[in-house]
């Protein structure tokens, strides 16, 4: 079966018009183990970029290196340059907390806080010391933006744990956009959801693209084909020096190109379902 990119959007330029985030020779290590090797790629502003590839190819690791979430893992280390508007995120003087304020993240499993729906949204703005003229308005706007307002407007004070998985994940996306980041990283955001909830999240992603840059890791190739402007295919290779498997970027191009006319045989094998 061939997957056709559904957003065969001819307006996607050959190269990102505006490079908001760039990786240059990025290597990520867990202790001595090199999980990702020499990734070079640029993410275009207001584009959705999908990272796909078989398990263990380092795509989630790379994603977490884009907002320094790997710093929270003991023994994790990133080498190379990750630049936001040309500024290296791994510069000694850069505060990882400041990085995460600009680059938010949505996780594989919905992880709302054990608080009310309202407080889940208000948490970020409060913690960052944002002083909106009205927190109520901010919560409403944010939930509306995340296409959740109509479903939760009557139970804002109830626990977020009472929501369905799909609603929880949209709440997590809402929570992320409440602090106005520039980039939203999504680590397999739909893997725990049913197809209907998945489709709502995909709709939401397409809407959010107007204002945000999105990088999504997905195991679901159809999903990449449906939502992403550009797709990067990763695979795991034997590291020449250590013999360990390590993730490498095989091919990065417009999604239409990746799914309809990939340049690399490995990409074609993967997207046509011959391995992975």
């Amino acid at each position: 079966m061939t997957i056709h990119a559904m957003n065969s959007n001819l307006s996607v330029p050959e190269q990102p018009a505006q490079r908001i985030l760039e990786c240059e020779k990025v290597n990520v290590f867990y202790g001595d183990y090199r999980a990702v090797t020499d990734v070079n790629m640029a993410f275009g502003q207001n584009e959705i970029t999908a990272l796909i590839g078989p398990s263990g190819c380092g795509k989630s690791t790379l994603l977490r290196s884009l907002n320094r979430m790997n710093d929270l893992i003991d023994g994790a280390r990133t080498e190379g340059l990750v630049t936001l508007h040309g500024e290296n995120l791994y510069d000694k003087e850069v505060d990882p907390i400041a990085v995460r304020r600009r680059i938010g993240m949505v996780f594989q499993k919905p992880n709302p806080f054990p608080k009310s729906i309202y407080d889940n949204i208000a948490y970020g703005p409060r913690v960052l010391g944002m002083k909106p003229s009205s927190m109520d308005d901010l919560v409403e706007e944010t939930l509306t933006r995340a296409a959740l307002w109509d479903e939760v407007k009557d139970k804002l004070k109830q626990s977020a744990f009472g929501l369905s998985g799909g609603q929880q994940q949209r709440l997590c996306i809402a929570r992320t956009i409440a602090v106005q980041p520039e980039i939203i990283l999504m680590d397999e955001p739909c893997s725990a959801l049913d197809p209907i909830a998945t489709s709502r999240i995909e709709d939401l992603m397409r809407e959010l693209r107007e204002d945000y840059t999105i990088v999504i890791v997905t195991h679901n190739m159809q999903q990449a084909a449906r939502v992403a402007d550009r797709t990067a295919f990763f695979t795991a290779l034997q590291d020449e020096t250590t013999g360990n498997r390590t993730g490498v970027l095989v091919e990065y191009d417009k999604t239409t190109k990746i799914f309809e006319d990939p340049s690399d045989q490995r990409t074609e094998d993967y997207i046509s379902g011959r391995f992975g």
């Binding site: 995460r100 304020r101 996780f107 806080f113 054990p114 948490y123 913690v127 992320t176």
Partner: peptide, 12 residues
């Protein structure tokens, strides 16, 4: 995952 969610929002 709670701590990660909080950290991802820029909380210290």
């Amino acid at each position: 995952s709670m701590r990660q969610g909080s950290a991802a929002l820029g909380a210290n």
